[in-house]
Design a protein around this nucleic acid. Structure first.
Lengths: 148, 148
DNA sequence: CTTGACCCTGACATGATGTCAAGGTCGATG
DNA sequence: CATCGACCTTGACATCATGTCAGGGTCAAG
């Protein structure tokens, strides 16, 4: 199978297939005489794994760890489960953060008449000193990418 | 006020203050003879507005629209409210997407013994053909950035 | 005058992905 | 055979908000 076929079969763009290869998530596939990539069924399964993990919001470096465990026939399932549960918490935190933003926004919107008059507590609220003071670094990135 | 002071006062990094200037969200401030930026109270308020809007997950181009409405004394509050409610829905969608991932992940994890044995339905599930078939583009980006 | 705390600009990095360009290949049809 | 369209290859640039670093100027206190 060449990359186009694999792309169709897995729903992963050719661009991304090559990208995963370039960053070492996917092994470098065999090449035909013409230089075309030639994928084995095992590679395709691996790509599916990656795609599923991305769909669940794992980042590439986390996936790298998961693939390591997948490749290791002797891993303890507890290791995998720990990663999964940790990631689930992460997702919960991110969802909660979004929900908090939404709540705040709706509170502001509640006070807004929403008619032709210009006075608007939403804008007024935004102009006030920070609610949530200092920001720290807390990676977000759990890339949902869902077909809406 | 120079940029350092403004940064402390608003919690926005100097880097970002300059960035907002460079992309036109913030007006170019006066300069002192030495070239240092000199901010007016009005600018600071504007920066606060931007920071608050970012905290609520608005992206820069949306903030640009909000600022336009803020500047326009004759806007109808309904315009602002519509944007706010739309954004709230967006946040809800994103949160729901994260929740869906979490649920899926927990379902997988439920079946996993989590002990020393190597068999693991989580990894098995990830290796299966795509659950959620094709991905479309659906911007995520609601950048939470909360101090955890 | 020196030192340390600022400020300035500009450039590069991040992460996952798209897109575009320039070129090689393959298969089918004229 | 020539050619066209569909496909593959690589490489580069763009996105978005933000950090960080380098190299240089400024200022105030000692």
């Amino acid at each position: 199978m060449n990359s186009g076929q694999v792309s169709k079969a897995t729903g992963v763009s050719q661009r991304m297939i090559r990208h995963y290869e370039s960053i070492g998530l996917m092994p470098r596939p065999d090449r035909r005489d013409n230089g075309y990539r030639d994928y084995s069924p095992a590679s395709i399964e691996r790509l599916r794994f990656i795609a599923n993990a991305r769909d669940l919001g794992f980042q590439v470096d986390e996936i790298s760890v998961l693939l390591g465990l997948w490749d290791d026939r002797t891993r303890a399932s507890s290791e995998v489960k720990a990663i999964a549960l940790e990631h689930a918490e992460d997702l919960a935190r991110k969802a909660a953060a979004l929900e908090a933003m939404r709540r705040t926004l709706l509170e502001l919107a509640e006070g807004c008449s929403g008619d032709a008059r210009p006075d608007c507590p939403i804008l007024a609220g935004l102009a006030e000193p920070r609610r949530r003071p200092a920001r720290q670094l807390t990676e977000f990135s759990g890339k949902p990418k869902e077909g809406v």
